[in-house]
Nucleic acid binder design. Structure first.
Length: 476
DNA sequence: AAAAAAT
């Protein structure tokens, strides 16, 4: 494996690329060679090492005060501070198996994304390293861990060697497709979907080398039904890791699965957001983790225009939504509700008005869910009414509008900032512009919106849905 | 409250 030029041996933490004003560097232990101030007295470098926390906190301060250009900032925290930090600028440098490299290029990837530059060398290192990675959606997380799985798999061995857990059925299907595409030049490679409704004969053993699934089914297949021998798993991936290990989420099952895996199994955790407590837990459950973080959440919101509509009841929200309808159906839209019940009510009301809408929620049968998401992906459905089942990870490039018919709140009725970010992150993907409209129907929900606004420190503007000019304006 | 199991 090739090391990037200028990588620094002995560093615990590196930022690429950053510019530091030279006067503030007293606490930074810089690698002396090759780093000279430029004409403006600024220090430009692709590799700076920090030896202590004080230096790190200074850097954080600089970032906050905007003295440091942190666009495309990647933060890497290595398990072994003495090993060199690699970063690759091309897929060739990774020395992938030819059939895997072929798969990568067939998917249209030419160069590694920002997160992949740093994550791939770590994941493919020998021996395999554990990794906790955070980066916004659309930055190549899925491709990164799929590549890691495919590089470890031995197609000749007819048993599961890689295991990937997803929080929902839809996401498992989506990720499965990436595995199939990228792995299509391995002739003998097979993929199994461990999802609800996918039934196998008792006593059978899986011959597929890679398994993707949702926690409940995977747990059953590993323990009670013994379709999978967990002791033979070499790579374990948690996608949307924050929900997978959150107490409110799938923590129980994920951890029970993890405990069955062999000690030397590689663990890879990927998520767009990590709340503090979840982040700490992640560092506790993953032995000797490497950590990669990319970008802060504010930057995700920059390409998404956020509005709110003031109403006084659910029916008024419905009316306002109808007024907006022409504007949101220019491309594709997702409408989020708090409960399955509201979602199915809303979908029914909208079709009564003569609008074509699709409905997706967890109460539907898996076959139906697969069909709906497929139609939405293909663009046959323009508007999808759904619950939090689609809040995370679902990639449909044409989605330009997200509507929160109900604001996201947790079980205690407090604003759910993480889910808000994930929901509106369904739009504005791959640097495209996006639009988010929040429906407010009471003092209480206005309060929640204000708290969300404060949390992200980003203005959410009022939108008058009776004003056609204004609607025209946001649509363009 | 939603999601997730052959419970």
């Amino acid at each position: 494996m090739a090391g990037a030029e200028g990588s620094v041996r002995g560093s615990a933490l590196q930022h690429f690329p950053i510019t530091l004003p030279v006067g503030d560097l007293s606490n930074l232990h810089l690698k002396e060679e090759k780093i000279k101030p430029d004409a403006n007295g600024n220090l430009k470098t692709n590799a700076i090492s920090f030896k202590d926390r004080a230096a790190q906190s200074l850097l954080n301060k600089l970032i906050r005060s905007n003295l440091v250009d942190n666009t495309n900032q990647v933060e890497v925290l290595q398990r072994d501070p003495n090993s060199p930090l690699y970063s690759v600028k091309s897929f060739e440098e990774l020395r992938l198996k030819p059939q895997l490299l072929q798969g990568v290029y067939a998917m249209g990837f030419n160069r590694p994304s920002k997160i992949q530059e740093n994550a791939l060398p770590l994941m493919l290192a020998e021996p395999p390293q554990n990794l906790i990675a955070q980066s916004q959606s659309g930055t190549g997380k899925t491709a990164a861990f799929v590549l890691a799985m495919l590089s470890q798999v031995e197609p000749a061995n007819k048993y599961p060697q890689c295991l990937c857990l997803s929080p929902t059925y839809e996401l498992a299907l989506q990720t499965g497709k990436v595995i199939e595409q990228m792995g299509k030049f391995y002739p003998a490679l097979k993929l199994a979907y461990a999802v609800r409704g996918n039934k196998l004969e008792r006593g059978q053993k899986l011959s597929e080398q890679i398994v993707i699934g949702t926690p409940g089914t995977v747990l059953d297949w590993c323990s009670k039904l013994k379709f999978i021998d967990p002791k033979k798993i070499k790579v374990f991936v948690l996608d949307e890791a924050d929900v997978m290990i959150a107490t409110q989420g799938h923590q129980d099952q994920s951890i029970r699965i993890q405990r069955m895996l062999p000690r030397n199994c590689q663990m890879l955790l990927f998520s767009a957001t990590f709340e503090d407590s979840v982040w700490k837990f992640a560092q506790k459950v993953v032995p000797d983790p490497n950590v990669i973080k990319l970008k802060r959440e504010e930057e995700t919101l920059d390409t998404i225009k956020q509005y709110y509509v003031l109403c006084s009841s659910r029916d008024e929200k419905f009316q306002a939504l109808c007024n907006l309808y022409g504007a949101i159906t220019i491309a594709q839209a997702m409408i989020f509700c708090h409960t399955r019940k509201t979602a199915s009510w809303l979908a029914a009301e909208l079709s009564k008005e003569g609008h074509q809408v699709a409905l997706l929620s967890g109460e539907m049968m898996v076959e139906q869910r697969a069909a709906v998401i497929e139609r939405f992906r293909e663009g046959k459905e323009k508007v999808l009414v759904t619950t939090n089942v689609c809040a995370r990870g679902i990639d449909v490039e044409q989605v330009s509008v997200v509507i929160n018919f109900d604001l996201p709140v947790d079980k205690d009725g407090n604003p759910d900032n993480e889910t808000y970010l994930h929901r509106i992150g369904r739009t504005g993907r791959f640097g495209k512009r996006g639009l988010a409209v929040n429906m407010v129907d009471s003092k209480h929900s206005m309060n929640i919106l204000n708290r969300i606004q404060e949390h992200f420190n980003k203005k959410i503007e009022r939108l008058d849905t009776d004003d056609l000019d204004e609607i025209e304006k946001i649509a363009n």
